[in-house]
Design a protein around this nucleic acid. Structure first.
Lengths: 243, 243
DNA sequence: GAGTGGTCTAGACCACGGT
DNA sequence: CCGTGGTCTAGACCACTCC
């Protein structure tokens, strides 16, 4: 499905880096050269390079060129701050091939009214009606995370427990309710409650990784606030920054 | 220090969003309008908007416009995956105003040779010589993190314990050894060793947030591998993604 | 159909690194 | 000095949303 020049070029260059046409520490051909090779403007080449850079595959040094980085290896479940629509989508990451089975167990499903305290937690407005959903996430049959979610009811009036059991994001897409436009997240390490320790079968460990995610519709409405608590030692969150 | 048109415009628009000229959920003026207002091309406006978007202040919906997002509040020490040169720079974040004092205590400082096992951990080559440094980080007088670092000796032949005590990044800048070009990081939650629990005075908690950071020079060399372990409940890592 | 952002071209000048 | 990437302009066409 080639559609954009710059993303085609991005994929070609990425393939060439992966297959060692341009090994780590070498410098890519200059932007002018690449322009000629692909018969596009320097601007289009620059967009492709920008994308490679935001992937953490290369970075540029003014006056010298674009340098290829050595790859990093990590053997845990990879997720990044906000780049998946839902838990189900973890499996689609190529690094996460070892995930064979993802299950969800709905622990709680009810509608509630947002009060003062919940408003602080969720950033919803006081008086809003919301679904409150607790879900246990199982990877290859083992409890790996608990989600505590609030979904604003206004945006999805007829959500059922069956939808929560399957995939809420799938439901939103199927029903064409709205589009998801952006997500913000805050990751922390927190000490756990007894209930969480029991459900996640933590044994000695008494902390979890907490990822609080705020998701926005394409109208600028916050419609979801979910806090996911992950068991220790099995998840990693990757990042890249160039200066 | 206005230098780039697009970043000037970025700062102006950011200020206007902060001061509620454009409140949350409203739509910014179109790119064409902004072009005229600032007397620049649409391209330049687009770069400024892109920067606002990567800050998580705003996101765009094709065919509709640029939507202003509601702000998120969080009351912990904020750091983001790789966007600070060193621990010392945490203080310069506006959100971290409550940090009054940052201290470093060097626990260990020696040179070692990278063997097979260390090569796996650091991604350095076997046989490389490296500095091994352990540092305890104190925020407002309280132990908050331990750094375990490896620096490739080749890149900085004359590092002293005094440099480690102050700021290694400052030393690199002062001596003009090389430029730092990029960093990659992996964040996880890990169970701690007894030693770590003692040094960080963890009390009941037995886990930490671990951030493993790989830093590259402008020649494409990996020169630093640092693993920082943070005490629970006091740090948060923020992210933003738009779809 | 009018207006929005998304992509792309063909030029230009500048700041920086290496020679 | 020359070559690199960084910024910017002035135009063009397309896909999408909204009315």
């Amino acid at each position: 499905m080639p559609k954009n020049l710059y993303s085609d070029i991005y994929h070609i260059l990425k393939g060439e880096i992966d297959s060692n046409v341009y090994p780590p520490k070498t410098i890519l051909p200059g932007e002018e050269d690449l322009s000629q090779r692909f018969s596009v403007t320097r601007n289009t080449i620059r967009r492709a390079l920008k994308k490679l850079q935001s992937d953490g595959l290369v970075y540029t040094v003014k006056g010298r060129g674009v340098v290829v980085l050595e790859p990093i290896v990590d053997n845990r479940v990879i997720f990044s701050a906000a780049n998946h629509y839902g838990f189900q989508d973890l499996m689609s990451f190529p690094q996460n091939k070892f995930i064979k089975k993802l299950d969800t167990k709905v622990l709680e499903f009810k509608t509630i009214e947002i009060d003062d305290q919940l408003s602080k937690h969720t950033s919803f407005s006081i008086g809003d009606m919301a679904y409150y959903i607790e879900r246990l996430r199982l990877v290859n049959g083992k409890a790996m995370a608990i989600d505590t979610s609030y979904f604003r009811q206004e945006n999805m009036p007829n959500l059922t427990i069956e939808n929560a059991q399957d995939s809420i994001y799938q439901y939103i897409r199927d029903e064409k309710l709205f589009k998801i436009a952006a997500a913000r997240s805050v990751a922390t390490v927190e000490t756990v409650t007894q209930k969480e320790a029991d459900v996640l079968a933590l044994k000695e460990a008494n902390c979890v990784g907490a990822l609080k995610k705020y998701v926005y519709t394409d109208l600028g409405n916050l419609f979801e606030c979910t806090e996911t608590k992950y068991v220790p030692d099995h998840f990693s969150l990757v990042g890249f920054e160039s200066y």
